[in-house]
Amino acid sequence: MGSAIDAATLRAYRETHYRVLGDRPMRLRIDQPSAALAALHQAHGVDCSAFITAANPFSQRCGDAANAQRQLALAQNLERMGLRAIAAAGEHPSNGWPAEPSFLVPGLSLQDARMLGEQYGQNAVVWSGADAVPRLVLLR
């Protein structure tokens, strides 16, 4: 099955460093197991998590103020769902794209991660199951 996302954007998503801030800082990479993420899952009593943003829908830059408003709306949505959002940022190591404000959300199911990603106009989300391997989940 193909994707509406161009090859260069997909490559950038796979190369991005998904940095989790907060009490347990870590850097996640697509398809690379993370002992730190496994420990975070255990500490939160969950078997999955998602790295998600509301910034720059469909990979179109929309500015700091607009991204901040979008992130606030996502944070409020996650709070209504009873989920804890840990501050994070997606940052490509070399292409000059500004770091995107994001959240790591312990316990966010794949179905809900997809739903939120679509709601906030994202091309993809990063989801990890019990194996603590971040996977790129394409939404278009």
Results as ranks from 00 to 15, higher is better:
residue 2 G to N: 14
residue 3 S to F: 13
residue 4 A to V: 11
residue 4 A to W: 06
residue 5 I to G: 03
residue 6 D to V: 12
residue 7 A to L: 15
residue 8 A to G: 03
residue 9 T to C: 09
residue 9 T to L: 15
residue 9 T to Q: 11
residue 11 R to S: 13
residue 13 Y to N: 06
residue 15 E to N: 12
residue 15 E to S: 09
residue 18 Y to W: 13
residue 18 Y to N: 01
residue 19 R to P: 00
residue 24 R to L: 08
residue 25 P to G: 06
residue 26 M to Q: 13
residue 28 L to M: 10
residue 32 Q to D: 11
residue 33 P to R: 07
residue 34 S to A: 02
residue 42 Q to K: 14
residue 43 A to F: 05
residue 43 A to E: 13
residue 44 H to W: 14
residue 45 G to R: 05
residue 46 V to P: 05
residue 47 D to N: 14
residue 48 C to F: 02
residue 49 S to N: 10
residue 50 A to N: 10
residue 51 F to T: 01
residue 53 T to C: 04
residue 53 T to E: 05
residue 61 R to T: 08
residue 62 C to S: 06
residue 63 G to L: 00
residue 65 A to I: 14
residue 65 A to F: 01
residue 66 A to S: 10
residue 67 N to I: 10
residue 68 A to L: 09
residue 69 Q to R: 15
residue 70 R to W: 02
residue 72 L to A: 15
residue 73 A to C: 09
residue 73 A to N: 06
residue 74 L to H: 00
residue 77 N to D: 15
residue 77 N to Y: 08
residue 78 L to Q: 03
residue 79 E to D: 15
residue 80 R to L: 14
residue 81 M to K: 14
residue 81 M to L: 15
residue 82 G to Q: 10
residue 84 R to M: 13
residue 87 A to F: 02
residue 88 A to G: 02
residue 88 A to V: 00
residue 88 A to Y: 00
residue 90 G to D: 01
residue 91 E to K: 14
residue 93 P to H: 04
residue 93 P to V: 04
residue 94 S to T: 14
residue 94 S to L: 12
residue 95 N to K: 10
residue 96 G to Y: 09
residue 96 G to V: 07
residue 97 W to V: 11
residue 97 W to Y: 14
residue 98 P to E: 05
residue 98 P to M: 05
residue 98 P to S: 07
residue 99 A to M: 06
residue 101 P to C: 07
residue 102 S to M: 07
residue 102 S to L: 05
residue 103 F to L: 12
residue 104 L to V: 12
residue 104 L to E: 03
residue 105 V to Y: 02
residue 105 V to R: 04
residue 108 L to Q: 08
residue 108 L to I: 12
residue 111 Q to H: 15
residue 112 D to M: 13
residue 115 M to K: 14
residue 116 L to E: 06
residue 116 L to A: 10
residue 116 L to H: 10
residue 117 G to M: 03
residue 120 Y to F: 15
residue 120 Y to C: 04
residue 122 Q to T: 13
residue 123 N to E: 09
residue 124 A to T: 09
residue 125 V to N: 03
residue 129 G to A: 04
residue 131 D to P: 00
residue 132 A to D: 05
residue 133 V to D: 01
residue 136 L to F: 10
residue 137 V to T: 04
residue 138 L to T: 12
